[in-house]
Design a protein around this nucleic acid. Structure first.
Lengths: 153, 153
DNA sequence: CAGAGTCAGTCCCTTGAAGGAACCATCTTG
DNA sequence: CAAGATGGTTCCTTCAAGGGACTGACTCTG
């Protein structure tokens, strides 16, 4: 497909996509987050090509989102665990879930519910401003050029 | 490529990916959000194939994320605007930006800064629980089966 | 009023990624 | 020793992305 590499763009969205933008990657992350750590389980659960799964896992390990840990020498067997970088990516999944629940779940309702440890209630994520703690939506902000705006030209 | 369709899966992540998971879609959304509404501008700004751009725009309109509005009859000219559904998707972009800024921006710092209307300060999004308003991370929750869990089997 | 320019696509060809099945290597269990 | 589990790798086919050329309708400029 000779796909355009987004990593070089001066945009954090593009660079994030470079890491988990490829097909299957977010779903792999979801399953690892939910407790599926092994190649075989992931492949069966997702029903995806083993080849592509191997490629994605290598890429995610290379990017520091997952860590490959040996859980058995002889036969050498690895499992895949989330790093801190990967755990923070899962927050992104929560927001995707929220949008999907609101706009695509339909009659049946959300397929999964989320119980917050802190309060024990079924809830969902909300976006707030890190400074004033008021709700922060895409429509509530202005965009300004930042320090890393344009290294070249 | 005969890509697997995620839309049918009983998972809000997969269904969200079905809408904006394809290459370029989030970047198109970003540019429309930032004020680029026309085909030509989008194509030049993104440097992507006109063919793929046309495909993506049609899909996003079909999905109700963008609306095609005629801004000139004769010559018939359309522009692309965010719907409510699309605006809420932009919240997802904010979270992607946050992660990209933290983990991929490097020395140069974030390419774009965000000023919150409510408080006027440069800030970023934080995830909070909709019920108790305390921080809510992927690691702070339990997953439970929801009503739309498994329509078949 | 001819020619250049703008805008929004469409068409066609090439290339390379996803799908899928088969294969392989290593160890364990019966 | 055969069968099974595990974790890949290799190969082939198919189809989507890239990219450039082309179209068609209108406008602007000299």
């Amino acid at each position: 497909m000779q796909r355009t590499q987004f990593g070089a763009m001066a945009c954090s969205i593009a660079r994030t996509l470079d890491v988990i933008g490829e097909p299957w990657s977010p779903l792999i992350l979801r399953d690892v987050y939910a407790g599926t750590h092994r190649f075989e389980q992931l492949q069966r659960g997702l029903g995806m090509s083993r080849k592509v799964l191997a490629e994605r896992l290598n890429w995610l390990v290379e990017q520091g989102v997952l860590a490959r840990r040996e859980y058995s020498a002889r036969p050498v067997r690895h499992e895949y665990l989330l790093t801190d970088k990967g755990r923070e990516l899962c927050d992104l999944l929560l927001v995707m879930v929220r949008w999907g629940d609101r706009w695509t779940a339909g009659e049946a309702g959300p397929p999964v519910l989320y119980r917050h440890h802190a309060c024990g209630r079924i809830s969902h994520v909300e976006l707030r401003c890190s400074e004033c703690e008021q709700p922060m939506r895409a429509t509530d902000i202005d965009l300004l050029p930042g320090p890393g705006a344009h290294p070249t030209s």
